[in-house]
C-alpha cells in the first residue's frame, strides 16, 4: 500500500490500470506520458512482447505537486490483459492503492469485460482486498468506434456499485485525465479517512 516517507516528505501511491486484452490500458499511460510536463514525469517503462502486447507491466511515475509540504507521487501500472498472463497480472496488484478498470466498449468485447472484472475481484481477494473498499473508477474506452455498447448498458453490467465512470477515447486523450484525476482524488480521500 501507500508509502509515506517523513524523512524526505513524500507520499507514494500505486495505481493499477486493469481490463481485458487490447482495451487500451497502455494507451492511457502513453497519452498521460505524452501530455505531462517533463519535470512531472519519469521514464515510462513497457515490458512488452515484440508485437507490443504487454508482457508483464507498463510503469509510469508521476509527481503531481505538494500537499501540506509532502510531495505526492503516483506510480501508474498496467497489467497484461491477455487471459493467460493471469499469474503476472496478480503480481502487479500487490500493494495497489487505487484501481482503474478500463472497459472495451465494443459490443463483441462485452463478455471479455465481464470476465476481466471478475478476474480483478478474484485476484484482489487473494490479497485480502475488496474492490468496493478500494479507491476505484471505471473507464468506458473506445467510444469513437462503431458497434459500441451504450454507456447505460455497460454501466448496468460493470458498475453496479456506481463508482465514478468516464467515457473515453484513449488515443485522442478524451477522458484519460478525468479518469486519472478521479482515482487520484479517491486515493487521497481514502488516505485521509484511514488515518482518522
Amino acid at each position: 500500500m501507500s508509502f509515506i516517507n517523513y524523512a524526505s516528505r513524500e507520499i507514494n501511491l500505486k495505481i493499477v490500470y486493469y481490463g481485458p486484452g487490447l482495451c487500451g490500458k497502455t494507451t492511457n499511460l502513453q497519452y498521460i506520458y505524452q501530455r505531462t510536463a517533463p519535470e512531472a514525469k519519469g521514464k515510462m517503462i513497457s515490458l512488452a512482447t515484440e508485437t507490443e502486447r504487454t508482457l508483464f507491466f507498463d510503469f509510469l511515475p508521476l509527481s503531481l505537486g505538494e500537499i501540506k509540504g509532502f510531495k505526492t507521487r503516483f506510480h501508474l501500472y498496467t497489467v497484461p490483459g491477455q487471459v493467460f498472463y493471469d499469474a503476472s497480472r496478480k503480481l502487479i496488484l500487490k500493494g495497489v492503492d487505487g484501481v482503474v478498470f478500463v472497459a472495451d466498449s465494443q459490443a463483441d468485447r462485452l463478455d471479455a469485460n465481464v470476465e476481466s472484472l471478475e478476474n480483478l475481484r478474484d485476484n484482489l481477494e487473494e490479497y485480502g482486498y475488496q474492490l468496493e473498499k478500494l479507491p476505484y473508477v471505471i473507464q468506458y474506452n473506445k467510444r469513437d468506434l462503431p458497434n459500441v455498447t451504450p454507456v447505460e448498458e455497460l454501466s448496468r453490467l460493470l458498475n453496479p456499485g456506481k463508482v465514478p465512470e468516464f467515457s473515453a477515447c484513449a488515443p485522442k486523450g478524451e477522458g484519460v485525465f478525468d479518469t486519472l484525476k478521479a482515482v487520484a482524488k479517491l486515493m487521497l480521500i481514502s488516505l485521509k479517512k484511514n488515518e482518522k
Partner: peptide, 18 residues
C-alpha cells in the same frame, strides 16, 4: 500521531493538485 497530518488535508488541497 500521524492522524493530524492527514486529517488536515482539505478537499481544496486535493483539488489544487490537479
Amino acid at each position: 500521531g500521524n492522524q493530524s497530518f492527514f486529517a488536515e488535508i482539505t478537499d481544496e488541497d486535493i483539488d489544487n493538485l490537479f
